[in-house]
Structure formats: structure tokens, C-alpha cells
Amino acid sequence: MDCSYFDAGRCRSCSLMGQPYERQLADKQRHAEDLLRAHDGLDWLAPIGSREDGYRNKAKMVIGGTTAAPTIGILDADGHGINLEACGICSPGHRAAFPVIAAFITRAGLTPYDVPSRTGELKHLILTESPDGELMIRFVVRSTEPVGRIRKHLPWLLEQLPNARVVTANVLPEHKAVLEGEHEIVFTENETLPMRLGDVTMHLRPQSFFQTNTEIAEALYIEARDWVRGLAPDSAWDLYSGVGGFALHIADAAASVTGIETSVEAVASAELSRTDAALSRVRFESGDATAFALGAETAPDLVIVNPPRRGIGRELSGWLEASDVRHVLYSSCNASSLARDLEAMPSLRPVRGRVFDMFPQTTHFEVMVLLERV
């Protein structure tokens, strides 16, 4: 894949841009194998590759420029906006919506936030597209001051983008390097975006995390379902469960499934999906994964972990090592922290692994391994 923004030096976010995709995928597989080379008997399945372009279902863009001429993209070193409306890794739905949203910013009189002077209102645009082509549009603003204008001009936006299902304003008053704040104002009747992955539909709320690459996420969850069916556990925990991707997909493979997630919004999304699918054997709770495990009276047959980049850490690794959990399914977006966590669980031996290329054109990828107690 080639990118004019990368070639011109305007954006270097995709560090592998221009490299043959076959080499990217092979290098990621080699990197995962090197990090886990100490584990004898680990059977590596062929890596799952992605489309090279148009794969992102979520675009997290900085708004720059002026009200009359807004930019949707990133900021340069001086805090000035760089327009990336034709970004090739964003979905076609994103690229079609960006010009309309830029026109809406002008029509509604939304002033882009200027980082150097700390003035203005509109900070970010977070745009998510579902597999069915519906959009969730979130405007991240400094205060509620522009909310009235967004609401006033919303009918025009919905007329121009009839596939916009959810439109919100997220309030982020602090001047700091974060993407969104805690307060969300929903303007539309619909508050969730259905994300249909095969026979499972997850209902995504505005502040809920969802995997960036829909097609690879579906492949990941289906693979996990197949592996778990082969284990036939009586009970399973899905720690760091997010919106319930793993738990919902393995619902028919275990007698009971419990999902644990710190984000209240994500738990609400997961519960809605569980109710919609009438899955009585699945439940979700809001809480810390490590604290939940350490406070449990009994351990399940299977534990699924899908932690952030830092990994599960020594405390949870130590609990898993000392427990009588028979199998662990570990899905990681950082193979280095995965390798470190595995060192702390020598009684749980990796027996199967697979790389899922969630992030083409970058060095990042997802890797899933199945551990069994020795």
C-alpha cells in the first residue's frame, strides 16, 4: 500500500507504509515466535492477515484549522492541523463522511481547539463505522457551550449522512493528552451502534472499546470459540472483557461464563448484547480483573485474558500460577508483555498460538495463545 501523506512526510503514523504486506506479516510472525521461543511444544498456526487498506472501523482524529476551514487529522509539531481526510487505512465510510462533517463544523460554527493558545472548543472527532455501514459520530468538545449549536444543526447532518445512527458530544475540559472525557451527551434516539460479527451482535456504547479491525476481530473471536469448544469447560471467566467479544462468542461452549471489566459503559454494552441474544449462562460485572480473581472463592476451568498493552501483571500471573485453573486463553496486543507474563506462570504451558494482524502498516499485532496446566 502507498500513501501520499506518508510519502510527503505529513503523517508517519503507519511506520511500515510502503513495505510489501507479505513481509510485514512474516516479520510479525517471526517477532512473536522469537519472543516465545523458550516455550517448547508451542504449535504456531499460520498467521491471519488483513486487508492492507480501509481496515479501521474507528477513526480518532484531531480537529485543527479554523471554523471556516477545519482540518480533520493530526497536529504538526507546532500544533497546527494536518488534514488527513483521504487516509487510506480508514474505512471508505469514514472517508465519505469526513467532508460532510467538515462542512457541518463550519455550518454549526464550531471553533477548533488551538493547542498552543488553549482556545477554541472542538478538540477531536471519533468516528466509528459498523459492519453494516452505520456510523457513530462523537464530537469531543472543551465545554457544553457548543452543544446547542450541534443540536440545532443536527437535522442537516443526519440528512447528509442518513447512515449516522448515533451522534454525541463528549466533554473534555482539561488541557491534557487524552482523547475523551467522562461526560457524554447523546443527541440521537439511538445510543448504541450494533457491531455484527457473524452470528454475534455487540451493541457498542459511545465510550466502549472495540477492536479496531472488524474482520480480524471476527476471526479472533471465532478462533477462540473453536479452541474453547475443544476444551468444553464447565466454567469460564473473561477478564478485561470489554464489550464482551470473547464471552459472547464462547457462550455455547461453557456451562457458565463471567465477564469482568472496569469500564461501566463497556459492561452496559455487554449486558445489552447478552440480553438481546438471550444468553442466560453469561453475565457481566464491573470491576478490576485482578481484584475479582483474588477475591473469588473458587477458580473456573478456563480463564480468558485480553489485557491492555501492559499485560496482566505479576499479581494476576501469580494467582493464575497458584490456582487450579486448567486452561488460560491469552489474547495480547503486546507480545513483549505476554512473554513477560508467561515467565511468571511456568505451570501453564503454551501449546497453541496464532498471530492476527489487527494493524497493517504498523508494527503492532494481536497474538493469541492457549495455555494448559502441566
Rank of each mutant, 00 (worst) to 15 (best):
D2E: 13
Y5E: 04
Y5I: 13
L25Y: 01
D27M: 10
D27F: 03
K28I: 13
W44I: 04
R56A: 08
N57T: 04
I72F: 07
D78Q: 10
H80G: 11
E85M: 10
G88K: 12
I89V: 15
P92M: 00
R95D: 04
I101F: 14
R107N: 05
T111W: 01
R118A: 14
R118P: 04
I126H: 10
L127M: 04
E134N: 09
I150C: 14
A164N: 09
V166D: 03
V166M: 08
A169R: 00
N170I: 08
P173A: 02
V178W: 02
E180D: 12
E184F: 06
F187D: 10
L193Y: 03
L193W: 04
R196S: 13
V200F: 04
P206Q: 12
N213D: 10
A219V: 11
D234E: 15
S241D: 01
G245R: 02
A254L: 06
T258Q: 01
G259L: 04
G259M: 03
T262P: 13
S269G: 15
A270C: 05
R274K: 08
T275F: 06
T275G: 11
E285V: 14
G287V: 01
D288L: 00
T298C: 12
A299N: 11
L302Q: 00
E315I: 13
H327S: 12
S332P: 05
L338T: 11
D341E: 07
R352M: 03
R352Y: 00
F359H: 01
